[in-house]
Design a protein around this nucleic acid. Sequence first.
DNA 1: ACTTGACCTGGAGTGCGCTCCAGGGTGAAT
DNA 2: ATTCACCCTGGAGCGCACTCCAGGTCAAGT
Lengths: 128, 128
Amino acid sequence: MTTIEVPAEGVTISGAAELSGLSVDTLRYYEKEGLSLRRPERSASGQRRYTEEDVRWLGTLVMLRRTGMPIRDIRRFVDLYRVEGSEPERMAILEAHREHVLVELAAVQTHLAAINRKIDHYKKMVNG
Amino acid sequence: MTTIEVPAEGVTISGAAELSGLSVDTLRYYEKEGLSLRRPERSASGQRRYTEEDVRWLGTLVMLRRTGMPIRDIRRFVDLYRVEGSEPERMAILEAHREHVLVELAAVQTHLAAINRKIDHYKKMVNG
DNA sequence: ACTTGACCTGGAGTGCGCTCCAGGGTGAAT
DNA sequence: ATTCACCCTGGAGCGCACTCCAGGTCAAGT
């Protein structure tokens, strides 16, 4: 729960991009797709200003995306955030996703073991 | 190194699909993209007949794909198979890929930990 | 003889997740 | 006054990995 360096006025979209590791285009794309918890505030001239909370939410999006959750599933998750008392459903989605990730992880690890065996095989050929 | 159930005459494309877990269309697509080690033999009427070796190679393709290697990288790897004495290069590709997979795996595991924390958080909210 | 089902080819279509672009606004610095 | 960097929007474009389709061949069963 570290406080990220976001001043009270908020950061620009490029600042938020840098902090989240996403691109500016992706940030606007996610917003268009309804993945923002709340639309970021705008400056007097209409530019987005991301608060610390906004940036933390981007971290959640990255967490879900990088573990393979499709955009449309994330949208369903975000939509629940706007529903009072939907905590059990949100938790259920996360738990289902966790299962998914664990299965995927196990599969990749199995294939990784096969890669290692193949490398060992080559090592023996090349050296021995 | 289990011997898979492939008769000497070879199996049809649908058989190979079933054995490899890929779809018939994907098998033809991979072949078109130059991922087959050697084109499978054909029956008198021009149908593909996959030998046990062909099916094992499909296993290698699945291993590489499911660990995230792009088609074009796999093609470069396959191309080396047709070059005499390219074992060191093939090994290098596999080793580089392994590093890639390990990095990806670590990232996913980090995000998984964050998912677990979020779930725990909800658990406390819902129960406590 | 005919129906059925599995196979063939070349090529078009699809879904996803961005990524880029044109055309325009704003505000600070020179 | 103009240059510059950065921002805005709506919409087009792209790369990837399939997936589907039309139109046809062939072998086996009824």
